[in-house]
Deep mutational scan, measured.
Amino acid sequence: TFTSYQLEELEKVFQKTHYPDVYAREQLAMRTDLTEARVQVWFQNRRA
């Protein structure tokens, strides 16, 4: 599960791009204290 802060950050990036590159995902992962893999999976699920 994600915190409301994490979801907010993820959604913010999703609004800009549905396909963030690895750099964007790593920045987001650091900001949200998630792994890059978790961020990647979240985007895959969000796009589905």
Results as ranks from 00 to 15, higher is better:
Thr1Leu: 12
Thr1Trp: 12
Phe2Glu: 03
Thr3Val: 03
Thr3Ala: 06
Thr3Lys: 06
Thr3Gly: 03
Thr3His: 06
Ser4Val: 12
Ser4Ala: 13
Ser4Met: 11
Ser4Lys: 14
Ser4Tyr: 09
Ser4Asp: 09
Tyr5His: 07
Tyr5Trp: 11
Tyr5Glu: 08
Gln6Arg: 00
Gln6Glu: 04
Gln6Lys: 01
Gln6Asn: 02
Leu7His: 06
Leu7Pro: 00
Leu7Trp: 10
Leu7Asn: 11
Glu8Gly: 08
Glu9Ile: 06
Glu9Val: 06
Glu9Gly: 02
Leu10Cys: 04
Leu10Thr: 00
Leu10Arg: 00
Glu11Gly: 02
Glu11Leu: 05
Glu11Tyr: 06
Glu11Cys: 05
Glu11Thr: 03
Lys12Arg: 10
Lys12Gly: 05
Lys12Ile: 07
Lys12Phe: 06
Val13Pro: 00
Val13Asp: 02
Gln15Pro: 00
Gln15Arg: 10
Gln15Gly: 07
Gln15Val: 07
Lys16Phe: 10
Thr17Phe: 07
Thr17Met: 08
Thr17Gln: 07
His18Gly: 05
His18Ser: 08
Tyr19Met: 04
Tyr19Asp: 05
Tyr19Trp: 14
Tyr19Ser: 04
Pro20Tyr: 03
Pro20Leu: 07
Pro20Asp: 01
Pro20Met: 03
Asp21Cys: 06
Asp21Asn: 10
Asp21Met: 02
Val22His: 13
Val22Cys: 12
Tyr23Val: 14
Tyr23Gln: 14
Tyr23Met: 10
Tyr23Cys: 13
Ala24Asn: 06
Ala24Leu: 14
Ala24Val: 14
Arg25Pro: 02
Arg25Val: 15
Arg25His: 03
Glu26Phe: 10
Glu26Trp: 12
Glu26Met: 14
Glu26Ser: 09
Glu26Asn: 11
Gln27Arg: 08
Gln27Met: 12
Gln27Tyr: 07
Leu28Met: 03
Leu28Asn: 00
Leu28Asp: 01
Ala29Pro: 01
Ala29Phe: 04
Ala29Met: 09
Ala29His: 02
Met30Ala: 12
Met30Gln: 11
Arg31Ser: 06
Arg31Gln: 08
Arg31His: 06
Arg31Met: 09
Arg31Phe: 07
Thr32Val: 12
Asp33Arg: 09
Asp33Tyr: 07
Asp33Cys: 14
Asp33Gln: 13
Asp33Gly: 15
Asp33Asn: 14
Leu34Ile: 06
Leu34Glu: 01
Leu34Tyr: 01
Leu34Thr: 05
Thr35Ala: 05
Thr35Glu: 06
Thr35Asn: 06
Thr35Asp: 10
Glu36Val: 13
Glu36Tyr: 06
Ala37Glu: 13
Ala37Thr: 09
Ala37Lys: 08
Arg38Asn: 15
Arg38Ile: 15
Arg38Val: 14
Arg38Cys: 14
Arg38Ser: 13
Arg38Met: 15
Val39Trp: 02
Val39Arg: 00
Val39Tyr: 01
Val39Leu: 08
Val39Asp: 01
Gln40Ser: 12
Gln40Asp: 15
Gln40His: 12
Gln40Val: 09
Trp42Arg: 00
Trp42Gln: 00
Trp42Pro: 00
Trp42Asp: 02
Phe43Val: 01
Phe43Asp: 01
Phe43Lys: 00
Gln44Ala: 10
Gln44Glu: 15
Gln44Asn: 11
Asn45Cys: 13
Asn45Asp: 14
Arg46Tyr: 02
Arg46Gln: 05
Arg47Cys: 07
Arg47Val: 08
Ala48Pro: 03
Ala48Arg: 11
